[in-house]
Design a protein around this nucleic acid. Structure first.
Length: 348
DNA sequence: AAACGCCGCAACCGCCGAGGT
DNA sequence: AACCTCGGCGGTTGCGGCGTT
């Protein structure tokens, strides 16, 4: 696997995947002489590789302290939390996850977490709700508080609609519920501060880069950053509420909403409590985000890099769970899936 | 069974900063 | 100050496995 290194090709050095024999040579040499001096290592170890290739092979794969296998829930939680603070500083994130390499974390982020966040309507870069979803929140905010304001046809009119039509359907669904004397829901939404916080967000999108290393060094956890995480959580709550209602066989739901938002049949929450869905339902993934509200730098950064006790040592691993099961955490959390017809790239 | 397409991840690329001369 | 070497980092690529048609 992997690509052929240009430098190796130029120098007549071997390229591509490592063979077990090469691995053995590299391991034996490092066991005898230790890592380092990568430039001369290949020659001394009898390898037809460039030093850089040897170093990467060692640090990303052969190092004895590397932990293989699936990421635990605790690890995933830590990655997301740290990424919200550090951004794509994979080496810094890896330093807090004993046994994991920056490359492994980067890969896991790009292939699993990032995609899941997109599905959840969370921007994986800023960890804030997606802007198009914020548009929805502004519609809801104004219309729930002042129902005379909303004119759906105006929002969709013109060559460039103000909002994504799919989002508008969601808004229409909520307004429909409100008109069916479901005011408490709207009030509950407001109690979650979703409107205020999201409105702020809409005006000033989060610039997470400003919270990188300098903030870390100061040991501060920005309240604004915390708010962003909470806001993301709140938006999830909104989605949960809306989509849970969509799961009801209630005639108050516009038919076109049900067409586009596929609800999972196994949720069945509406039957037990059809009017006020509980956004605090058990969900590992939701608790993950909820935990951000209580997140402190100390809790993460206090773990020594070389700590003999991995931070997940006492946690419940979900290594045995399949990716589908992890996905189900999300679907349980939000009670809806983005319609397949929606092109995420279109919103990026 | 073969063809096709998607996905995960190992490995490379290119750039940068630190340290030495 | 300028240059060079080395190691590290984030971004990207593409092979191989696997599921689907």
């Amino acid at each position: 696997m992997g690509r052929a290194p240009a430098c190796c090709e130029k120098n007549g050095l071997k390229k591509g995947p490592w063979t077990p024999d090469e691995d053995l040579k590299l391991i034996n040499h490092i066991q005898l002489h230790g890592p380092g001096n990568w430039r001369n290592l290949p020659k001394n170890a009898g390898l037809q590789r460039c030093g850089k290739s040897c170093r990467l092979r060692w640090t990303n794969y052969l190092r004895p302290d590397i932990k293989r296998g699936r990421f635990s829930f605790e690890e995933e939680e830590t990655i997301i939390q740290l990424h919200s603070i550090l951004g794509n500083k994979w080496s810094s994130i890896a330093a807090r996850l004993p046994g994991r390499t920056d490359n492994e974390i980067k890969n896991y982020w790009n292939t699993h977490i990032r995609k899941r966040m997109l599905r959840m309507g969370i921007d994986p870069v800023t960890h804030a709700p997606r802007l198009d979803l914020l548009d929805l929140s502004s519609i809801l905010s104004s219309s729930v508080c002042n129902p005379t304001i909303l004119n759906v046809s105006n929002l969709l009119a013109g060559s460039q609609p103000l909002v994504n039509p799919e989002m508008l359907k969601l808004a229409a669904a909520i307004l429909s519920l409100k008109q069916e004397n479901l005011i408490p829901i709207a009030r509950n939404l407001q109690e979650n501060q979703i409107f205020d916080s999201l409105m702020q967000n809409q005006v000033q999108p989060l610039q997470l880069n400003q919270y990188q290393t300098p903030v870390l060094q100061q040991g501060l956890f920005s309240s604004e950053m915390s708010n962003q995480l909470v806001q993301a959580n709140n938006l999830e709550g909104l989605c949960s509420k809306v989509a849970t209602f969509g799961n009801c066989s209630d005639n108050s739901i516009p038919s076109d909403l049900n067409e586009d938002f596929v609800c999972h049949p196994n949720h069945g929450n509406c039957s037990s409590n059809p009017t006020v869905p509980d956004i605090q339902e058990n969900s590992d993934f939701q608790s993950l985000y909820n935990s951000n509200q209580n997140f402190s730098f100390e809790s993460v950064l206090s773990t020594p890099i070389s700590s003999p006790t991995p931070m997940n040592s006492s946690s419940t691993f979900i290594n045995s769970s399949t990716e589908d099961e992890k996905e189900s955490y999300c679907s349980n959390l939000f009670k809806f899936e983005i319609p397949e017809g929606l092109d995420f790239d279109e919103f990026m």
